[in-house]
Design a protein around this nucleic acid. Structure first.
Length: 333
DNA sequence: CTGATTTGACCACG
DNA sequence: CGTGGTCAAATCAG
């Protein structure tokens, strides 16, 4: 995101400023133990404010992204990968097909998300991350003691889901696995429509109990390119849950952010290179975008499997899009 | 029988 | 030319 229109910039600042002020008001409300209703209203306003600011930033990012993708397509006419029309139809020689396949790799998303997980006793291999993967290859990696396994989404052919990952046992600690996700799951949209309905029920339910729930947004084609990354406002992680961003050198100068959060969504980016997740802590939702769509970085997370397993299994991987408020305009306030 | 995994070969990229 | 990523035939498992 290199240039931001000054009007948009001001709006973002306005949004964030308002969020801050509302937060302060909420703080004042909380301590005199005022009515819950007032607190709830303020929380809604705060969230709305941040949501709008972030949505705006996302829109800007999308525009940037779109222009980049367009340029890429113009540059490489064969770059429409993974579409039904580009595969299967128009039969040509096997050699030609393979050549096309390898051409495709050039424009695959550079974005990846790397997760380091610790294997749990008695468990062979990395933890289940909630998706269905099919192994399609294994490779000995130079300098690595253990081979790297390559997985792609089971629904690659049935639903055109291009998500892939590779898993490699760590050299230093064989109980650790480095999992590198590439591409975002597009196979979950149908399921998520249903889950989104369920979510409304869950949301009500969650107001009556304390716990952790996670929802991965359902995506509409447009919303898919809205980057979103979420973490609880108040870290609930223990010391052994360390999360950090590591950047590829080229991006390091652009993106210097380090934070701690308890979870990294396995839902990874597709050709839009985005990661998206929402997590709910108790009955408080926070949705925060950390990642610019064009960012080309690797996200490394160290999470003990025991934790990820319990979290990922207990949390619902449904999808809940970062919805742009239809009424939202630049002069929203 | 069907779907998943294995494994050798092929290809792009640096 | 070496390495990493992917393909696809062969094989395995439920």
């Amino acid at each position: 995101m290199e240039k931001i229109d000054s009007l948009e910039c001001k709006t973002v600042i306005s949004e964030l400023t308002q969020g801050r002020e509302l937060a302060n008001q909420l703080k004042n409300q909380l301590y005199p133990a005022n009515s819950r209703k007032a607190c709830g209203f303020l929380v809604e306003k705060i969230l709305s404010s941040y949501e709008n600011a972030l949505s705006l930033l996302n829109c800007i990012a999308i525009l940037e992204e779109t222009s980049q993708v367009s340029a890429a397509i113009l540059e490489s006419p064969n770059s429409l990968v993974g579409t039904p029309t580009s595969e299967g139809s128009n039969p040509c020689s096997k050699e030609q097909n393979q050549r096309d396949v390898f051409k495709k790799r050039k424009i695959l998303p550079k974005w990846s998300e790397e997760v380091r997980v610790c294997s749990v006793t008695g468990q062979e291999g990395p933890p289940d991350d909630g998706y269905n993967w099919r192994k399609y290859g294994q490779k000995d990696i130079l300098g690595a003691s253990f081979p790297r396994a390559y997985y792609r989404c089971t629904h690659r052919h049935t639903r055109g889901c291009l998500a892939t990952k590779h898993v490699q046992k760590s050299d230093e600690d064989p109980s650790m696995f480095d999992v590198n996700y590439k591409g975002r799951h597009t196979c979950i949209q149908e399921r998520q429509k249903q889950n989104k309905e369920d979510y409304k029920v869950k949301e009500e339910d969650s107001n009556h109990r304390s716990g952790i729930k996670l929802e991965t947004p359902a995506l509409t084609p447009k919303e898919e390119i809205v980057p979103s990354f979420s973490f609880p406002s108040t870290p609930i992680i223990s010391d052994n849950l360390e999360t950090k961003f590591l950047l590829e050198p080229a991006e390091e100068s652009k993106f210097t952010e380090s934070c701690t959060y308890p979870f990294v969504s396995p839902a990874t980016s597709d050709c839009n290179y985005l990661s998206e997740s929402l997590c709910q802590m108790d009955d408080f939702w926070v949705d925060c975008n950390l990642q610019s769509p064009e960012s080309d970085f690797t996200n490394i997370v160290s999470i003990p499997t025991s934790v990820t397993n319990s979290l990922l299994r207990d949390w619902d991987f449904t999808a809940d899009p970062v919805e742009l408020d239809p009424s939202f305009t630049l002069d929203y306030f």
